[in-house]
Simulated assay, not measured.
Amino acid sequence: MAKRNQHVVPLGNGWAVKGEGNNRFTAITETKRDATTIARDIAKNNKSELIIHGKDGKIQAKDSYGNDPFPPRDSVN
Rank of each mutant, 00 (worst) to 15 (best):
M1H: 08
M1G: 13
M1Q: 12
A2F: 04
A2S: 13
A2H: 08
A2T: 05
K3C: 11
K3F: 10
R4Y: 03
R4E: 03
R4I: 00
N5I: 00
N5D: 15
N5P: 02
Q6C: 10
V8W: 03
V8K: 06
V8G: 02
L11A: 06
L11N: 07
N13V: 04
G14D: 08
G14Y: 05
A16Q: 07
G19F: 01
G19W: 00
G19Q: 09
G19H: 00
G19P: 07
E20S: 15
E20C: 05
E20H: 14
E20Y: 12
G21Y: 08
G21C: 08
G21L: 12
N22I: 06
R24M: 09
F25C: 01
F25K: 01
T26H: 13
A27K: 13
T29G: 00
T29P: 02
E30T: 11
E30N: 13
E30Q: 14
T31S: 15
K32N: 08
R33V: 11
R33G: 01
D34Y: 06
A35G: 07
T36Q: 10
T37C: 02
I38F: 04
A39M: 11
R40W: 01
R40N: 09
R40T: 15
I42A: 12
K44S: 05
N45C: 06
N46R: 13
S48K: 04
S48P: 06
L50M: 05
L50Q: 03
I51A: 04
I51Y: 04
I52G: 01
H53M: 07
H53G: 02
H53E: 09
H53K: 09
G54W: 02
K55E: 15
K55M: 10
K55I: 11
D56H: 04
D56C: 04
D56M: 02
D56I: 03
G57S: 08
K58Y: 12
Q60S: 08
Q60R: 12
K62Y: 09
K62P: 02
K62C: 07
D63N: 12
S64I: 07
Y65P: 06
Y65W: 14
G66Y: 10
G66Q: 10
P69S: 13
P69C: 14
F70V: 09
F70W: 11
F70Q: 09
P72D: 11
R73W: 06
D74L: 14
S75F: 15
V76H: 15
